[in-house]
Write a protein that binds this DNA or RNA. Structure first.
Lengths: 346, 346
DNA sequence: ATGAAAGCGCTAACAG
DNA sequence: CTGTTAGCGCTTTCAT
């Protein structure tokens, strides 16, 4: 029987023989209320099963007690893992977590002005989205604290951020390959010009270019293939590479998911890994461990957690210098990389 | 410069030379407002960059415009995929999606009374949690519509639900193994008595028992191993099975994640799959495809999506008969199952 | 079609 | 320490 009349603070006050104000103080454990009275009131609250109306409280206090998280389609394991870290910390806090999923370009365009709105949320966490000029400006003068995770546009300098140095990660991956003796190294990545400005693939590619140059290995445009993010797409990209008259002896994939696609392509092409082809991924998601994939580890879960920490801090003390924290990357060698076969030399 | 004064409906009214009431009607496209006036007002709204205060609106209308989702730690790919389906539909709606993550037993105990509260959310979606007696009763007389996804307790009959027939799924998996000729079939599952009442592992086990019995294969208790959910844990479970004097020739794992653990154990034990050991999982997450794992497919994403549909319906028309929708399961044969080797016979 | 006024349920400033 | 009062910003009768 859901014939429950909504029970308000006035009802409790009446039942307890005190004023609404006192009840309010009691349930917000204000110090200025007699312990006995307080206990009595709390007792009544219990008995009546009273639960304060959140909306009223929010309107009255001017705080939404919610933090908004903006994520691009969180299907992607790396994104989901970051979100996971964020949620895990937020659960302990008194804030509600409202999710805004960005799937379409239209969402993308609206969200940076609509979400960071004082009467939508007290703070905003943006995951793996790197708004550029027009949007970045909107963010900059939003009226709530904002923390970006995994966002790298220079226009974002005045915002709190936690990132990973993807250029460095790209370097580590490529250095590993070069040190193993590879000189024909392919790159399978995302499409660099993308509506959501995922920038990580670009930066990893930058690191790759740097190391090649430092090692005196000329960059070959045909060794670079970009495609939509995804396993299937990466498989196609890899096939393109493997069909080349002089195919690479190693491939650096911009993510573990893509590395799996490359792995599949290698199998389909009858190539042994790491014998005929070395493969390195990026992220170190669980899949990488399962497949024994050599990869660059980044602290996904940790980044979400840390982002929330920064946001919570900013909520306490709004006027704080923007913090930019960069998390480390680490090469994890497993069994998909090895020196090239001698007869394939440079 | 975040020196933006909060601009209210009164400001707009003043600027437009009308009353707040009219502005309210205009922005809520009420039919009882002169088209010209309306256009004029909307114009001003644009210019001033006015955005209505959500909390005020919510308090005033008595609708939270939010739907709460309760999920147990959404690290688990199957849960995450359901959530994904839910989010994808909710994004299109005017409802906010607030996530409540259940990690601890304490959360679990509170959430069924605290969340389904009219002033917290207009509706609640509960994913992969099967509250039993005490909690089920609380849910039954909550004051908002509730939809459960992947919940199977009989006490839940009066609630909207979308489930999958896990007993049937368990049967399909076991039948497949039996038809291949296996008679020594192990089961690696979750701990059945668990605080959150995940019931899927139990039901899959039930299906397994049924088919064994129908096939005249006596159930051997030593072929059943339960452990915490997880890949590592499943690996240990599988090792237990494989160390048996007469080890199983096939193992049914209660999820794909666990099947991977079994796969690893087989490799460590030097067993060929499917030659020496057949393995079948459950869920058909992406990993299953990557690993070419034979499995039982269930419609994870779809379940989330459908759950939201039901909830949205219930929001329209509160007094509706509880709908119980059960989604199909399907055997997907890949390459981890085969007939047992002749010399290992029954 | 529009304005005036009441009120959603709570908190907070002000008396006492 | 506690009661009273005045809003928070919006929607919504009820008049006009």
């Amino acid at each position: 029987m859901s014939s429950k009349k909504t029970i308000t603070i006035r009802d409790v006050a009446r039942a307890a023989g005190v004023s609404p104000g006192t009840v309010s103080r009691a349930i917000n454990d204000s110090p200025l209320v007699n312990p006995d009275t307080c206990e009595h009131i709390l007792q009544i609250v219990q008995e009546m099963g009273y639960r304060p109306n959140l909306m009223a409280r929010r309107l009255s206090t001017g705080k939404t007690l919610a933090i908004a998280v903006i994520v691009p389609f969180f299907t992607r394991p790396s994104v989901s893992e970051r979100l996971n870290g964020a949620v895990s910390l937020l659960t302990e806090s008194r804030y509600d977590l409202v999710i805004h999923n960005i799937e379409t370009t239209e969402h993308y365009e609206n969200c940076f002005v609509k979400i960071p709105d004082r009467n939508q949320a007290d703070g905003v966490l943006i995951i793996s989205l790197s708004p550029a000029e027009p949007e970045a400006a909107q963010l900059a003068d939003a009226d709530v604290p904002i923390v970006l995770i995994d966002a790298d546009h220079p226009a974002l300098n005045m915002l709190h951020r936690v990132t990973v140095d993807d250029v460095e990660g790209g370097r580590q991956a490529t250095e590993h390959l070069v040190e193993l003796g590879h000189r024909r190294i392919g790159f399978v990545g995302d499409i660099i010009e993308n509506p959501f400005n995922f920038g990580s693939s670009r930066d990893r590619f930058l690191g790759y270019r740097q190391v090649l140059e430092e090692a005196g290995i000329p960059f070959r445009p045909e060794y670079y293939v970009e495609n939509q993010h995804g396993r299937q797409e990466a498989r196609e990209s890899a096939h393109k590479l493997l069909r080349l008259p002089q195919p690479p002896t190693a491939i650096f994939a911009a993510s573990d998911t893509q590395a799996v696609g490359v792995l599949e392509a290698a199998m389909e092409a009858g190539l042994g890994v790491p014998g005929d082809l070395s493969i390195i991924g990026y992220d170190d998601i669980e899949l990488a461990d399962i497949l024994q994939l050599t990869t660059i580890r980044q602290l996904l879960f940790e980044s979400g957690r840390r982002g929330v920490e920064l946001l919570l801090d900013a909520l306490e003390d709004a006027s704080k210098e923007p913090v930019h924290e960069v998390l480390p990357t680490e090469l994890v060698v497993r069994s998909t990389t090895a020196p090239p076969l001698p007869n394939q030399g440079g």
